[in-house]
Amino acid sequence: MLFPVAGIEVHPLVPPAVAFIISFFTSMSGLSGAFLLLPFQMSVLGYTPPSVSATNQLFNIIAIPSGVLRYMREGRMVWPLTWAVVAGTLPGVLIGAIIRVTYLPNTADFKLFVGGVLLYIGGRLLKSILTARHCKANLEAAPQLLGQTKTLEFSLKRISYSFQNETYSASTLGIFFLTFVVGIVGGIYGIGGGAIIAPFFITFFGLPVYTVAGACLMGTFVTSIAGVGIYQLLAFIYPTQVIAPDYLLGILFGVGGVGGMYLGALCQKYVPATTLKILLTIFILFTAGKYTLGYFF
């Protein structure tokens, strides 16, 4: 099947199948799946113009709601954390999209930039696993004992909530500025920003992965809507570049992501938190390696 915008030809069942497999595993760690779909599209399908970032975000819009719905039903959505993520990443994604089209249209340059950031994040997460700094968040509680989150404080100064008889808190302004910077990277990459935020929440703020996954997915969903709109607008401003998303390809990816995202969110509570952190680290380092080494070889 020919996808004219992307300029590629592939069997129509391949995109949803790949998206299903990727989303099933990544959604357990608060990732939408777009995190790994981008290197798949670029390295396997040969889809490299800036519009690949917009197509990734279109996938997010279709696939993420099923996973978020599952977290909401189980009472594991930390809404104050979610709104802080959205508030910070939205302006960042706008800036990131402009940088991607204006200053990083070259595929190799933007791979190297994002690869360096991901390598740093993955290194921090790997270090936290090896040193077991967050042992409280890694208690291997029985899946059926996982409780709901409860908001204790939500102000401009601090966000605080309880989970499994433990209290977790973080600076609201700290989260906002962090998500703003990460949103810029997410806008360049085409993942909305929420995916990159998850390891920061785990390593720097000491928040349990069981509670940040839903917030990151919801943040990615909202910012992806804005991201697709921004890239579509930029397509009119830069008519000589392929910037607007490939809607047909994005929808096919999204269809597969819906099933994978929902099942991943459903199965997350049956997987130990340490295992989820290891999976997240592998995803990050794998992508960082692909991007960084690809620049030199």
Rank of each mutant, 00 (worst) to 15 (best):
L2C: 03
P4A: 04
V5W: 05
A6H: 03
I8R: 02
V10F: 09
P12Y: 10
A19L: 01
I21M: 07
M28S: 08
S29G: 13
G30N: 08
L31H: 09
L37E: 10
L37G: 05
Q41N: 13
S43Q: 12
L45M: 13
Y47E: 08
P49S: 14
P49D: 14
P50C: 05
P50F: 10
F59Q: 11
L69W: 10
R76F: 08
V78L: 04
W79K: 10
W83S: 05
G92W: 12
N106F: 11
V114H: 07
L119S: 11
R124D: 06
L126A: 12
H134G: 13
Q144D: 07
K150R: 14
K150Y: 09
T151Q: 07
L152S: 02
E153I: 07
I159R: 04
F163T: 06
N165S: 14
N165C: 09
S169K: 03
S169D: 07
S171K: 03
G174V: 12
T179G: 00
G183K: 06
G193K: 02
A198F: 09
A198W: 05
F205S: 06
G206I: 06
T223S: 15
I225K: 03
G229C: 10
G229S: 11
L234P: 10
F236P: 01
I237N: 04
Y238M: 07
T240W: 07
A244D: 13
P245H: 06
P245S: 11
Y247I: 15
I251D: 08
F253P: 06
G260E: 08
G264P: 07
G264H: 05
L266A: 06
K269C: 08
P272H: 00
T274R: 11
T275Y: 11
I282Y: 08
G289I: 13
T292F: 12
Y295E: 12
F296Y: 14
